[in-house]
Amino acid sequence: MRVEIWSDIACPWCYIGKARFEKGLAAFAHRDDIEIVHRSFELNPNLPMGVTAPVVDTLAKKYGRTLDEARAMEAHVASNAHSEGLEYRTEGRDSGNTFDVHRLLHLAKERGRQNELLDLAYRANFVEDRSVFDSETLVRLGVEAGLDETEVRAVVADETAYAEEVRADEREAAELGANGVPFFVLDRRYGISGGQPAEVFTQALEQAWQGRTVLQPVGGGDTDAAPACDVDGNC
Rank of each mutant, 00 (worst) to 15 (best):
R2N: 13
W6M: 01
S7R: 03
D8C: 00
K18T: 07
K18F: 07
A19S: 15
F21W: 13
E22V: 10
R31Y: 09
I34G: 04
E35H: 15
R39C: 00
N44E: 14
N46H: 11
N46I: 06
V51D: 05
D57F: 04
G64W: 10
E69N: 12
A75M: 14
V77E: 11
E84S: 04
G85S: 09
L86V: 00
T90Y: 05
S95N: 07
G96E: 00
D100P: 07
R103G: 01
A108P: 03
A108C: 04
E116A: 15
L120S: 01
Y122I: 09
A124Q: 01
D129H: 11
S131V: 01
E136K: 15
T137C: 09
V139P: 04
R140C: 09
D148P: 08
T150F: 04
T150E: 12
E151P: 02
E151M: 07
A154G: 09
A157R: 11
Y162L: 02
E165W: 10
A168W: 05
L176G: 05
G177R: 05
V181T: 08
S193N: 10
S193D: 07
V200N: 05
V200I: 15
F201H: 06
A204F: 04
A208F: 11
Q210S: 15
T213R: 14
T213M: 12
G220C: 08
D222R: 10
D224N: 08
